[in-house]
Amino acid sequence: MNQDAEFYIGWQTETPPGFARAVRRFIIGLCLLVPVVAALIVVFQSGFSGATFEYGKKTTLEGTFSRSPVPFLSIHSGINAAGKPVLQKILLVGPGKFGFDATAKYKNLQNGALVTLTGFLIYHDGKTGMQVESIENQAITGNQQPITDKQQPVSSPVTLRGEITDPKCLLGVMKPGLGKPHRDCAVRCIAGGIPPVLKVANTAGETEYYLLAGPKGEPINNLLLEYVSDGVQLCGRLDPEGDWPVLYVDPANIRRINKGALNPGNTCN
């Protein structure tokens, strides 16, 4: 028999003391447990980079436009210790999850054109990009000559291990801008024309970012979609100059590797 004399009915006004006590204890337990859980989640998550997306804060830059292998704006950013001008490359992307070329009116922009460009800067780890909002051609004057830049890779073949993602999110539009949770977004960005980037980290914790293009500098975005956010090994010729090195790769030679093998070093030949 041994049945409790107390009986709870939700629509009655009073809760029997034994029931109220049990519920109180449950709620107190939750009040103690939940903050601990919340704190553990926050404390033990990976954290976020100091990448910055200056959305809403427009910046205007003047420089030389180049389309291949990826859309860049080359600007002079001062003079180095030897008294020579320092060249900075700004990676150009479109709004949302689109590349620069997705905006129809930019497609006819000539390679080497001097332009004034307005947009939102995105920067992280010494790399800079810009979400372009408007662009104007400039007349070439005697003092303003287009910056000429070589277009071909210069190194012998190298092999790199890393993770493919999109540079727009990686530079600061999203945090984290890589990894499995970000995979679908990176796929959309790369499918939308934003050039793919290979993030490579070495054991010393140093990170480098390599923009990826085909052997002749052609876009290979759609060929890389299935590898996005995976650990991959890529072999190609490297143009290491400037602040945005470019790796010219044959997509047929991409190999998927365990992400645990990402850190041993830049080369694996």
Binding site: M174, R188, C189
Partner: peptide
């Protein structure tokens, strides 16, 4: 919105086709 909107396909389509 964060991962699938403002792209080259509909967000719901993106959800099922991106991966």
């Amino acid at each position: 919105v964060q991962f699938h909107s403002l792209g080259n396909v509909d967000p719901l389509l993106s959800l099922f086709t991106s991966n």
